[in-house]
Structure formats: structure tokens, C-alpha cells
Amino acid sequence: VTLFVALYDYEARTEDDLSFHKGEKFQILNSSEGDWWEARSLTTGETGYIPSNYVAPV
């Protein structure tokens, strides 16, 4: 499993987005949709879409 870490804070803009804080780690569930990836936060357990340019591989 490839994990990603948040480089910046992000505040959700829609109900499908996932808010997160810098340093939070994610498991990517689906990265085939372009710039927005479906991810699960390893901190909160919540699932939603995150901007791929806000995260980097651990």
C-alpha cells in the first residue's frame, strides 16, 4: 500500500471533499479520476476526495 502525506492544510469545498491538516497520512483508494483522488485518512478514518497536488508519497 502506497501512503501519501499532506503537504498543506486543506478545507473541504464540497461534501465529497475531505478536509485535512499538514502531516496527515492517507491511503489512496482511487487515483484514476485526474487531479482529485479518493482517499482514506489514516488519522480520522474518513473517506473523500483530496487534491493530488496537496500530497506526496511517504
Rank of each mutant, 00 (worst) to 15 (best):
F4H: 07
S52C: 07
D9I: 02
H21S: 15
D17F: 14
K22M: 08
Q27W: 15
E33T: 12
V58N: 06
S32K: 15
F4R: 03
R13F: 09
L29H: 05
T44W: 03
T14D: 13
A12W: 02
G23I: 00
A39M: 05
E11R: 10
E46D: 08
A56W: 10
D9C: 05
K22G: 04
V5T: 06
I28F: 03
E24Y: 05
Y54T: 05
F4Y: 15
S19N: 07
H21R: 15
S32W: 12
I50M: 02
G34F: 13
P51N: 10
E38P: 05
L18R: 02
L29Q: 05
A39Q: 00
A56H: 10
G23Q: 03
E15T: 14
H21L: 12
F26S: 00
L7Y: 03
G48R: 02
E11A: 12
F20Q: 00
Y8S: 07
G45M: 08
V1G: 15
N53T: 11
I50W: 00
Y10V: 02
A12L: 02
A12E: 04
H21P: 06
W36M: 13
E33L: 15
T14S: 14
D35P: 09
E11F: 10
Q27A: 10
E38K: 10
L3Y: 11
S41K: 14
Y8R: 10
D17A: 14
L42Q: 11
Y49V: 08
A12M: 04
A12V: 02
W37H: 03
D35Q: 11
V1K: 11
G23D: 06
L7D: 02
F4K: 02
D9W: 04
S31K: 15
L3T: 09
N53D: 13
D16C: 07
L29E: 05
S52R: 11
Y54N: 03
G34M: 12
N30K: 08
N30D: 12
S31L: 10
A12N: 05
D16T: 11
T2A: 12
Y54Q: 06
V1P: 14
F20C: 01
D17M: 13
E46P: 01
T2R: 13
R13V: 13
N53H: 13
G48D: 00
Y49M: 13
I28N: 01
S31E: 09
W37S: 02
T44C: 02
V58M: 14
G48H: 03
F20W: 01
I50A: 01
L7W: 04
E46M: 15
Q27T: 13
E15W: 11
D17N: 10
Y8A: 09
Y8P: 00
T2W: 14
K22D: 02
S32Y: 12
N53E: 10
K22F: 06
Y54C: 05
I50V: 09
T14P: 03
G48M: 03
P51Q: 06
I28K: 04
P57Q: 09
E46F: 13
E38R: 10
G23E: 04
G34I: 10
S41G: 03
Y8I: 07
G34Y: 11
L18T: 02
W36C: 06
V55R: 00
S19H: 05
A6P: 00
E15G: 14
V1F: 12
V1R: 11
D16F: 15
F26T: 00
V1L: 15
K25T: 14
I50K: 00
G23M: 03
S41P: 01
D9Q: 05
S32F: 09
L18C: 02
G23V: 01
F4Q: 04
N30G: 10
V1C: 07
I50S: 00
E33I: 11
N30F: 07
E24T: 08
N30A: 08
S31W: 11
D9T: 06
W36Y: 13
Y49Q: 10
G45A: 05
D17S: 11
L7P: 01
W36S: 07
Y10R: 04
E11N: 12
N30T: 09
D16W: 15
S41M: 06
I50Q: 00
A6W: 00
G45V: 01
N53Q: 11
L42S: 05
E38I: 15
